[in-house]
């Protein structure tokens, strides 16, 4: 059974190649496709089992990070996207991809809310681009793509606009109660902490969200940058290297989820 993964790219997308490697390593057949071709209908979302919006500087981060691509997807690919999400197939947004998902309202994607924007990812508190490793704590196991992840694990971030801001603190509480806050920034012991463990000042230390059904996941850190063991921030200090980096697990879970979906449908 071939699991076909779509990696959407556009002007300024950067992380698509290594995202494709990770998907391939996880057993999928990745296809890096320019959004123009999707808009023209040359390739269709429905023909894929997994969709990933990778990291980068889509449209140069002009106006706001991810806004223009979000706008493009919302206005040109709304139905195919809606259909894909409703079908329960995996949709992953990494960094810029996460920004796109919140700015077109697919995350938190509350039922009946039809692409309403409820949270955003704003400029880092430090006022600077931050390229560093941090730790993530798994805050909810609702999303099936976190299966097998340790409760605290390291991943790198690299962004200038990663500060999670909800429309209100009560809204954030509601999201947490529903298990939609998937990852939080933490220190090595899993404790919620300030800078640099929370590299951007995210409210509630939120690093990743999922939709109510759990098949749409967005996170600011880059799992594809810790899919291979020698990408680890200090692998020379470790006596043994595992077969894969911990980020790889997310891709593995998505491929498995897609396979199960295909078997059912």
């Amino acid at each position: 059974m071939i699991v076909r993964a779509l990696v959407i790219r556009c002007a300024g997308t950067n992380c698509d190649e290594e995202t494709a490697w990770s998907l391939e390593e996880a057993g999928a057949q990745p296809d890096r496709v320019h959004v123009n071709r999707l808009v023209r209908g040359e390739k269709k979302l429905q023909d894929y089992d997994i969709v990933v919006i990778p990291g980068g500087f889509s449209y140069g981060d002009d106006i706001a990070s991810g806004k223009v691509l979000a706008n493009q997807l919302l206005n040109r690919l709304r139905s195919p996207l809606e259909e894909f999400v409703k079908s329960g197939r995996p949709l992953l947004g990494i960094c810029n991809g996460f920004q796109v998902l919140v700015k077109c309202g697919l995350l938190p994607g509350l039922d009946g809310e039809d692409f309403r924007i409820r949270v955003t990812l704003a400029e880092n508190d430090s006022g600077r681009f931050e390229c560093r490793w941090s730790y993530l704590k798994v805050a909810s196991r609702r999303c099936p793509f976190v299966k097998g992840l340790p409760s605290v694990f390291p991943l790198p971030v690299a962004h200038g606009e990663g500060k999670f801001v909800p429309e209100s603190s009560s809204f954030l509480t509601a999201l947490e109660k529903r298990g939609q806050v998937v990852f939080k920034y933490a220190d090595a012991h899993g404790r919620l902490a300030g800078y640099p463990w929370n590299p951007n000042g995210s409210v509630g230390h939120v690093a990743g969200l999922c939709n109510p059904a759990g098949n749409v996941l967005g996170l600011m850190p880059h799992p594809e940058r810790h899919a291979f063991p020698h990408q680890h921030s200090h692998w020379t200090r470790l006596s043994r290297q595992p077969e894969h980096g911990v980020g790889f697990q997310i891709f593995k879970n998505m491929v498995r989820h897609a396979m199960e979906w295909k078997e059912r449908n």
Binding site: E17, W21, R132, A158, Q231, S233
Partner: peptide
């Protein structure tokens, strides 16, 4: 740290190293 030194996923020895890099 203002420069992305990890994009492309190829950087195996990074500009900052050690326990806390």
């Amino acid at each position: 740290r203002q420069y992305d030194h990890e994009v492309q996923g190829r950087t195996v020895l990074k500009p900052l190293v050690g326990v806390q890099q």
